[in-house]
């Protein structure tokens, strides 16, 4: 499922991120095609999360270009990137903890809504329609995760959720921004095997049913093998391998990056 003829939805060209001399990313070329699930793996400090931060404009790229649907994202504010259609989750779950579950998915539709102060004050029909619409869409997104985030949970503050549910809500919040591309930063970290197996299935369904292109950072190789169309391996900010799971996992350079030189002999 690598329609090479198609235009990539996301493309980085020679992307570099420099933290005061430390090259967190160096000359990275990466392409993600519509409807594709790409895993980014690599040892700690390889620059995986920095890649996400650069794409979402949380850190500035020091060289190279990031193209989304053929247009550059360089110089945009994070919120503009989101409204172009890229959503993300965070490695260390960062929900709006004191807002309710439903409010979390409502507020992330901010860039898709237009009502101003006056709509809210005059309680116009347009305002009410929009509120109803985002409530509806919020509930739809939450029901993707079964009954865990629905019903009485709608009105519970996010911090009351269990760890796994918080992770699920983070994905729901990203989905609610109506993206074309979702960046998942270690979605199954800290989950038990049952939960992570379930979430692996959900990642596939995200692509099949919702049509998102997905980039996943993941350490759990089970999950990576299960979901990925393609795997990209980073080490010290440089891409050292790319291909399907079987190829990449046999690549001596990858084994070396993970296990060190002596171990492969």
């Amino acid at each position: 499922m690598s329609p090479a003829a198609q235009q990539p939805i996301l493309e980085t060209r020679g992307l570099g991120v420099d933290f005061g001399g430390l090259k967190a990313l160096d000359g990275l070329d990466l392409a993600v095609y519509p409807g594709e699930i790409v895993s980014v793996i690599g040892p700690n400090g390889a620059g995986k999360t920095t890649l996400f931060n650069a794409i979402t404009a949380t850190v500035a790229a020091s060289e190279g270009d990031i193209l989304f649907e053929g247009e550059s994202l360089i110089g945009l504010d994070p919120n503009r990137v989101t409204s172009r259609g890229i959503a993300r989750t965070f490695q260390n779950v960062r929900l709006f903890a004191n807002m309710t579950v439903l409010e979390n998915v409502m507020v992330s539709q901010h860039c898709r809504t237009r009502q101003s102060v006056f709509g809210a004050l005059l309680f116009t029909k347009a305002f009410r329609n929009e509120e109803a619409e985002i409530t509806e869409r919020g509930k739809e997104v939450l029901s993707f995760f079964g009954s865990r985030l629905t019903g009485y949970r709608f009105d519970q503050p996010a911090y009351t959720l269990s760890y796994a549910n918080r992770r699920r809500l983070e994905i729901a919040r990203a989905m609610a921004t109506q993206p074309k591309l979702i960046l998942l930063d270690e979605p199954v970290a800290g989950m038990n095997p049952t939960e992570s197996a379930e979430l692996t299935g959900l990642i596939g369904r995200l692509r099949d049913e919702w049509g998102f292109a997905i980039v996943v950072i993941e350490h759990d190789m089970e999950v990576v093998r299960e979901v990925s169309d393609r795997v990209v391996v980073l080490d010290h900010g440089v891409k050292i391998a790319e291909g399907d799971y079987a190829d990449v996992s046999a690549d001596p350079q990858v084994i070396e990056a993970y296990l060190g030189r002596g171990a492969s002999v």
């Binding site: 809504t113 809210a120 985002i134 919040r173 921004t177």
Partner: peptide
């Protein structure tokens, strides 16, 4: 919508920005 955005900013400004 505006009130919710205010709350989101109060909770975590960086994430609020990343959420559009």
């Amino acid at each position: 919508r505006i009130g919710r955005a205010w709350m989101a900013v109060r909770e975590d400004e960086t994430v609020a920005e990343a959420m559009g």
